[in-house]
Nucleic acid binder design. Structure first.
Lengths: 341, 341
DNA sequence: GCATAAAATTTACGCGCGTAAAATTTATAT
DNA sequence: ATATAAATTTTACGCGCGTAAATTTTATGC
């Protein structure tokens, strides 16, 4: 690519001696042109630096290779991780992912969806904000664009839903905690944005009752997405007011647990399962950071790979014409035993 | 927006009774049309759901409102946080940010830059990978697109550089540690991807010598971006082999420190400044998570707001025609005293 | 060498919108 | 009411590429 810059396909057609429609075919699928033509084009590409404008490409294409990925909040490492995973899968499957974050704001989420329409995506992988989402905006979007909902299900919209089995999550870890020590109380935010939180509370209550224990739910104040700080402040309050009825605390999610661990540290409360420990703390999610808390956090982890693979594969299948009835897939989590509980 | 979907501006022109060029002006700047016209358009927008296709808009515009934001790795909360900050500033200034992550991969970084060209951005805010970056790709990109480099400077490319003053960071926190206890040794990765790491090591050495202490650098193995794990594994090795010559450890960055804290926990080494503590650990960066480690991490924090504001403002000024010579701005960090050191 | 099929080229139009120039309408001042 | 300026409409072309149809060129079999 020593030559000058080529500004469009027509110029590259002149300079390479190949007609523009053939070039168009080539860039769309190199194997669709004759070998001799392909090598001529590739030779020209070596000499001259040219890349077709992807946005112009998509303008008049009936089916693009674009895939939109929307998460509620990119600064949450959980979503960052799953977004990264999904992006890789899209690339591997020959799609072109574009990542968007709703920044925890319903208005921005709607904005993102409008922007996405302009991209003419072949499909979208959407993790909605949850309760805050504008249901009408989501619904109309899903009618226009093949959309697969993941992480947090709103209603039966889109092609399908893929997420984790929150009931299994909570039941499983509650069971573990009951078997290995005092039955846990459940620590959560009072007004969680995510519907998964409700499922987890209910699953906790059901599990406790099934095991013959009295469920105790500790709900702390806090709005927004600063879960660690909510967990920390709520932890202080809960300790001060004696809300924790047992020495075992199951948190609604790992970020809350991380904040609670900090509160424990600040209160001088030793966390862990050793004899010198006063309290056990467990989380839920398998947050990327949970390995590095002190003590490392016992948690039940999403199967990141399976969730993203199932979601991506389902979307790709739908894009490629497969029609299947709406379906909800909820994948089981894996208990990760560490020192905190 | 009760009516049917309008598919393009021409259809909206017919239905609203306004000519398409006037609509184009309106969408570009609502105040550029007469009040009576504007209210007619706005009334039509209430009735019919129409939004211009942004990618088609940008196709033939001489100067778009697009701003590209590129970070090395979105799953690092530090970059996620600064990216979020930059996005907000772009939106506030009337620009349209699009976020990209290089996923820690130089080839992908080059890919991203090529994608960005298609967007015809008015400007780009780019945090390069660092040493791994393809310098030639960066340089030619900067020649074509007004680009402001932030976080990690490569050479004198682009419009300007805005980042943190790593020398001040390390000098300041080294000074603090020396004044309040044993002089620190410096804990880092052997082959850091980021040039900032080198500046910090050198600043540490210089500071120690100036204070009349012997600098000790502990470099641990590890490649890639899994800093916490590198910090943890390296920490185990360093403890086992007695590499830490003092009871105070200054880490090259917070993520490494977070991993080291975990190693300390696993080794049963108490961290903090209390009399019952065996070791002090400090980080650098003011990572979003540093508040929630146990003990909370003493660190020297980037001035996120100032960095992102300086970077964004400089880019916007350049976009709006201001020409200034290349300049490097390095902002001071703020020492955050917490329990770890 | 010729017939046939496959691939490439030519030609032409479309995507959704920006933008420039000329013609027309509207608002403001006198 | 008239002159002037401002805004709008009409008309037309451009951005960079997709894509379809007709034509010409190339490759393959015999």
């Amino acid at each position: 690519m020593a030559g000058d810059k080529i500004k469009n396909m027509e110029e590259f057609a002149r300079i390479s001696g190949i007609s523009r429609p053939t070039l168009s075919k080539f860039f769309n699928d190199p194997s669709s042109v004759r070998d001799s033509t392909r090598s001529k084009i590739e030779a020209a590409l070596e000499q001259y630096d040219y890349r077709p404008n992807i946005y112009a490409m998509n303008q008049n294409r009936k089916l693009t290779k674009n895939v939109g990925i929307v998460v509620p909040l990119l600064s949450d490492p959980y979503f960052a991780e799953i977004a990264r995973n999904l992006e890789q899968r899209c690339l591997a499957a020959g799609y072109r992912p574009t990542l968007f974050s709703s920044h925890g704001d319903a208005a921005l989420e709607t904005e993102v969806l409008d922007t996405l329409r302009s991209l003419k995506p072949a499909g979208v992988l959407l993790a909605p904000l949850g309760r805050a989402s504008d249901p009408h905006a989501l619904e109309t979007f899903c009618k226009d664009v093949p959309t697969l909902i993941f992480d947090s299900s709103v209603e039966e919209i889109g092609l399908a839903f893929v997420g984790s089995d929150n009931v299994q999550f909570t039941t499983h870890i509650t069971d573990y905690l009951c078997r290995t020590g005092e039955p846990p109380c459940f620590y959560e935010m009072k007004t969680p944005a995510n519907p998964n939180a409700h499922r987890r509370r209910q699953a906790y209550i059901a599990a406790m009752e099934r095991f013959g224990h009295e469920p105790v739910v500790v709900s702390v104040e806090g709005e927004g997405w600063s879960f660690e700080e909510i967990g920390r402040l709520g932890g202080h309050e809960a300790f001060d007011k004696g809300w924790f009825s047992t020495n075992t605390i199951l948190c609604s999610n790992d970020r809350l647990a991380i904040g609670l661990l900090t509160a424990c540290y600040e209160k001088g409360v030793h966390v862990g399962r050793g004899s010198d420990c006063a309290i056990r703390v467990a989380g839920q999610d398998g947050h990327p950071h949970s390995r590095y808390t002190c003590p490392p956090l016992t948690t039940i982890s999403h199967d990141y790979d399976a969730v993203s693979q199932t979601a991506a594969d389902a979307l790709f299948a739908a894009i490629e014409g497969q029609v299947t009835p709406w379906k909800s897939t909820r994948l089981e989590g894996r208990l990760i035993l560490r020192d905190s509980a």
